[in-house]
Amino acid sequence: MASSFVIGTKFRERLNDLLGQSNLAVPPELREELRNIVEKEEPSTLTFRTARTIHKCLQENGHPVFLHDLLEDSILFLPQVEMPPRNPELVARLEKIKAKLANEEYNRITRNVNAQEINRHGTLADFGREVRSAKAVVVTVFNFLVTVAATFACSYMGSQYLFTETAARVIAAVIAASVVGLAELYVLVRTMEGELGEP
């Protein structure tokens, strides 16, 4: 907190002029203090208490120079705040807490990163999973084709007892194979939905 002024050159000159005047009644203590301030090397400071005393003295003597005119080129003296030294135990604890928070943040960010997925070629387990998936698809398609072909063959052979013409037998076999194929597709879709966890 400011408690004094750093006086400027104008203040020194005007104060010298005032102290040189014989008609100015300045108390000896104030005169001695002001003389010490003026003779002191720059930067010299003037306390607020001394500034108020000068102001009072100028008012009592009816002097035309006001205090703000004297302090025109002076600035407030703001002492530098000295920070107390930090407690080493507190600093060590803060460093531990910072390191812990940084580690938790890193773990949160990298939680879903899998080092095996970073490999471009994948792992042997990924290759095996892909082979099993492809094998299941091939078996399903083969099963579908065999079922439809067997239904067509059975319907064609069995319809000879109902129809004598070949066209009617083929149409009946195609209708039966289509119905069985659609039923097979429906069952396949429902099974795949169940595997994916959809309702």
Rank of each mutant, 00 (worst) to 15 (best):
D126E: 15
E41K: 10
L76H: 09
R129G: 14
I75W: 01
R108E: 12
L188F: 11
V113E: 03
V38A: 06
R93T: 04
N87S: 15
N16P: 00
V91S: 12
C57N: 08
T50V: 15
C154Y: 08
A115Y: 07
E13Q: 14
L78P: 01
A150Y: 05
R35A: 07
Q160M: 13
S44I: 02
T191Y: 05
C154R: 08
A134L: 14
F5N: 03
R52E: 14
S74K: 00
E165C: 04
V179R: 03
N36G: 06
N119I: 15
C57V: 13
F66E: 09
T53M: 08
V91A: 15
M1Q: 11
A176E: 04
T140H: 01
K100R: 12
V26G: 03
L18E: 06
S44F: 02
T53P: 00
N119H: 07
L76A: 10
G122H: 05
P28Q: 12
M192R: 08
A136V: 00
D69C: 01
E72A: 09
L188T: 13
S4M: 02
V81H: 12
I171R: 10
H121P: 00
P88R: 15
R35V: 00
A125S: 06
N87W: 08
P64D: 08
G181Y: 01
M1T: 13
A149E: 07
G20D: 14
L71F: 06
E13Y: 09
Q160L: 07
N119C: 05
K56V: 04
K98M: 10
F11Y: 13
E33C: 01
V187A: 11
H55A: 13
L188E: 04
R132W: 02
P88Y: 08
I118Y: 10
D73C: 02
H55I: 00
A102E: 15
M1P: 11
E60F: 10
L70N: 01
A172L: 05
I37M: 10
E42H: 08
E95I: 10
E32K: 12
E33T: 13
A173V: 03
R52D: 10
